[in-house]
Amino acid sequence: MMEIKDILKPENLVYGKSKVLTDTIMHYCPGCTHGVIHKILAELIEEMGIQEKAVGVAPVGCAVFAYNYIDVDWQEAAHGRAPALATGIVRLNPDKFVFTYQGDGDLASIGAGEIIHACNRGENILVIFINNGIYGMTGGQMAPTTLENMVTSTTPFGRDVEMNGYPLKMTDLVAQLPGTSYVTRQSAQTPAAVRKCKRALKKGIQNVLDKKGTSFIEVVSTCNSGWKMTPVQANKWMEDHMFPYYPLGDMKDCEKEKPVEKN
């Protein structure tokens, strides 16, 4: 019978923490999807050898401290403005790998203008959009993406669409824009989903390296604290309630539209 200590040898290592992920313990709540996405992003930056050309733009929201966890150069944007910062960075530094990391309050509410125009210009950036249907950082208020009848701290009797409008499908919107090249909706609640999401992120990164236009990757996520569930319950609730309204899968996969030739 083999002892555990005989298995724990460097040559037997099959999964461990990426070197691009720092040793700082993440401030996220237990079971938060942010941690998983940070981790696979760090793994990809390491595997694709792009740490030296990566510049991240952090949002305002729970991921405001993303710069503490992934070991690349970062800028911290004002609320919703990450795509504008990324535009400024990439226009003047076209050979860098520039990405924004934004939540649904940041991207779909206060930053709706900036993201639409950045995608419409086809800025050569990767947008990672974490959609958990709620404002996590400020205490679980309604987001534009909050589902109909979903209870939040500002919709204590459930989201009333007569009063608050309908949950906003940002990813469907940006897929319509000629500037986007790869638009997909993913999740990260099971090993298979995380692996699939990582492949999508890899494709998005590769598109940026190949200068194909904006790649936009939504990750339907949980906020178990905001939803007031355990992490395992939150994953189940997401599958049952979020996925029917925010169905997973690729919406667009092409090069951004080429301009019409001038005569």
């Binding site: 037997n12 290592l13 099959v14 461990g16 923490k17 999807t33 941690g35 981790k39 090993p191 995380v194």
Partner: peptide, 22 residues
């Protein structure tokens, strides 16, 4: 069985997985 599923879903990257064929 060292499948790494635990590591893959861990949000805090605190799981390291080892595997050997016997």
């Amino acid at each position: 069985i060292g499948c790494s599923n635990c590591g893959v879903v861990c949000p805090d990257a605190c799981i390291t997985v080892y595997r050997v064929k016997i």
